[in-house]
């Protein structure tokens, strides 16, 4: 079985050889630098905690399930929040499918997390519903997550990233590292609200999969298919310079709005346009996040 993870790891090896060996791992580990690993207490069990973290003796004493906090903090949980709606089956700026770039980004971070002994889980879905995968610390588990991401197709529902974020806000009590796999969403009240809510609880990394240009010299040629409404878009009409200019202005305004929102919450972002630059961009993202704290 051709593994999605193997492809990701190959890219990472190439990157690791170019940079100092181990740098990537170090960048990841340093995200959680400064946590008090020796601190120990007990707290109530909430859904999402690993069963192995339950302090059975304390549970037996008190009569309600308790988990050992120190173990849980030492073993970080990485949660991918990904949109697997139709948007991800569209073209990215570099001409690949956006879901392939998402798989790449998730793979890189997943391999790092698993190598560090952390567990990874996934909340994904589209406008029709959200699905959550439990945490796991094996490469096999990462591969399973990647396959979920890879399954995003035109037969899926329309994209709704905010709904996935709201699901996370509603269902996860544990402090986690959130990696949000987004595409060019626009900043709006709903997104701002849920981000504010999530930022208070979690560390957040924002990975933006860049959309293909629809107008201008580098735009997609011919006729496009709008994945939101599944309707044709006459992209060849967008060769008109005036139209391309107003499109570029609209896009720049959207990007500015989103980056202002993310910056306000101190969320580091990376924009990935093609799979060849994915590893470097993730590395830069981790570094940015470490320095930003």
């Amino acid at each position: 079985m051709a593994s999605l993870l193997t492809a990701v790891q190959k890219k990472m090896h190439i990157f690791a050889h170019r940079k100092a060996r181990g740098l990537l791992e170090g960048e990841y580990a340093s995200i959680f630098r400064g946590r008090g690993l020796d601190f120990e207490d007990l707290r109530d069990y909430v859904p999402g905690d690993e069963v192995r973290d339950i302090d059975w003796k304390a549970t037996a004493r008190t009569g309600k399930p308790l988990v050992k906090r120190y173990v849980a903090t030492r073993r970080q949980q990485l949660l991918f929040v990904a949109d697997t709606g139709r948007n991800m089956a569209a073209l990215a700026q570099g001409g690949e499918l956006k879901k392939d770039l998402a798989v790449m980004a998730m793979g890189v971070l997943g391999v790092l997390a698993v190598g560090h002994g952390d567990s990874v889980s996934l909340v994904h879905g589209d406008g029709d519903g959200t699905d959550a995968l439990p945490a796991g610390g094996t490469e096999h588990h990462v591969e399973m997550l990647l396959r979920r991401m890879d399954a995003a197709g035109l037969d899926h529902g329309p994209s709704d990233l905010a709904a996935q974020l709201e699901y996370v806000a509603a269902h996860y009590r544990q402090r986690m590292l959130l990696v949000i796999i987004a595409d060019g969403v626009a900043a709006d009240q709903r997104l701002a609200k849920v981000l504010r809510r999530l930022r208070a609880q979690h560390e957040i990394l924002w990975v933006d999969i860049a959309d293909a240009d629809l107008a201008g010299p580098d735009a997609v040629q011919g006729t496009g298919l709008d994945v939101a409404g599944m309707e044709p878009v006459l992209l060849f009409l967008a060769q008109d310079p005036g139209l391309a200019r107003s499109y570029a202005e609209a896009m720049a305004e959207r990007a500015r709005g989103l980056s202002e929102l993310l910056a306000a919450h101190g969320i580091a972002t990376a924009s990935i346009a093609s799979s060849s630059e994915a590893v470097a961009r993730i590395f830069a993202l981790l570094e940015r996040h470490r320095r930003g704290r």
């Binding site: 139709r86 569209a90 298919l225 994945v227 139209l243």
Partner: peptide, 26 residues
């Protein structure tokens, strides 16, 4: 439509008045 290239967030183009004019002319 499977032959067309799928693109996301096309409404950012299609809602531009210039694009609507171009489509009407087309």
């Amino acid at each position: 439509v499977q032959e067309h290239s799928p693109v996301a967030h096309a409404e950012r183009l299609t809602e531009l008045p210039a694009y609507r004019q171009a489509v009407a002319a087309h």
